[in-house]
Design a protein around this nucleic acid. Structure first.
Length: 306
DNA sequence: CCGAAGGTACGCAAAGTATG
DNA sequence: CATACTTTGCGTACCTTCGG
């Protein structure tokens, strides 16, 4: 493999070009090449070109910044006090805010400001965030069950029976509050251990073009701003899932509705995307449920007598 | 312009669970 | 057992976008 790369350079008639690590600019020799991990990013340098690596620069920049944090905040505050231009005001305010935020703090005592306006029963950030996620999910459940009255009268009882299964399941998983809780295990939470959330992009894209991100654990403003982020149903709840469920119950005709499938669509990350408000498309998504998953598979075809 | 749909937060009260 | 705190459910209010 390494020989290939090096001979590749030569074949391209760039005999003098060199390879180095994208990360820190370390130049690669054929020998060293063997020891680097798979999928390492490399940079191909033409003669005369150099690459210092990206880590060193950013690290250097941030470290000098953070070691003198207090001085910088003080200096920025001084500047801000007589600064009139809105653009510069904004830059200074953002700077001060970013440097004085207390991301790692959890308790009310550690970060009083964060808890301003939060009910006193909440003792730490994670449990508040967890609660806010739970209530979002709860409101989805409420919408599903309140649809009962709109279901065909003959199917109402069965619809209620099915939504009760969903409710029991939701209770058993604590309304998936884990999605917003940074103390949770990585596989179930939507954020990093520090509480950073990234926008997952509009429902019809795999990623967010703008790279929106937010840390509601960082300060009061971010906490409040986070409420404008949405859990967007890819297949829409009201337009699609709930009516399909009602229809499925009505037309079940002896079959068993696979409520777990609907549960997945309504309440889990299978069908929920966390998105910045700009990536939240409220237009009709025009997606339908998977017809093959609506009813339970029969173990065996039963012969219909008669 | 309005209503419906996509969302969120807040406040209150009843029910449930701890705690002394 | 009484009190206090949590959880849960419900109603209300608000925002944006879309489409008739």
């Amino acid at each position: 493999m390494c020989a290939c790369v090096f001979s590749f350079c030569e074949q391209l008639s760039f005999p003098d070009c060199r390879l180095c690590l994208y990360e820190d600019g370390t130049e690669l020799t054929e020998g060293y090449f063997h020891s680097i991990p798979d999928n390492t990013d490399l940079i191909l340098l033409a003669p005369g070109e150099t690459w210092q690596g990206f880590v060193s620069d950013i690290d250097h920049f941030l470290n000098t910044f953070y070691t003198q944090k207090d001085d910088i905040v003080e200096a920025a505050q001084k500047l801000l006090s007589d600064e009139q231009a809105p653009k510069i005001q904004k830059l200074l305010v953002d700077l001060i805010q970013n440097l004085s935020e207390n991301i790692l703090a959890e308790s009310r005592e550690e970060d009083r400001k964060w808890f301003e306006g939060v009910e006193s029963r909440f003792k730490n950030k994670s449990s508040y965030m967890r609660y806010s996620c739970e209530s979002r999910i709860r409101s989805y459940m409420k919408e599903v069950s309140s649809y009962t009255s709109a279901v065909h009268p003959a199917a109402q009882a069965e619809y209620k029976r099915i939504t009760d299964f969903m409710l029991d399941k939701l209770k058993s998983v604590k309304y998936n509050g884990c999605y917003f809780d940074r103390r949770e295990e990585a596989v179930v939470r939507l954020c990093t251990t520090e509480g950073w959330f990234s926008c997952q992009g509009p429902f019809d894209r795999d990623y967010c073009l703008c790279k929106h991100s937010i840390n509601p654990y960082s300060n009061r403003e971010s906490r409040i701003l986070f409420s404008t982020w949405n859990l967007d149903h890819i297949i829409e709840k009201k337009r699609t899932i709930v009516p399909t469920l009602a229809e499925a119950v009505k037309e079940q005709d002896g079959r068993e509705v696979a409520w777990e499938y609907f549960y997945q669509l309504l309440f889990t990350l299978e069908n929920l995307k966390l998105v910045h408000i700009a990536c939240h498309k409220k237009t009709s998504h025009n997606l339908t449920c998977d017809k093959t998953k609506i009813y339970r598979k029969r173990k065996r075809m039963r012969k219909v007598s008669k």
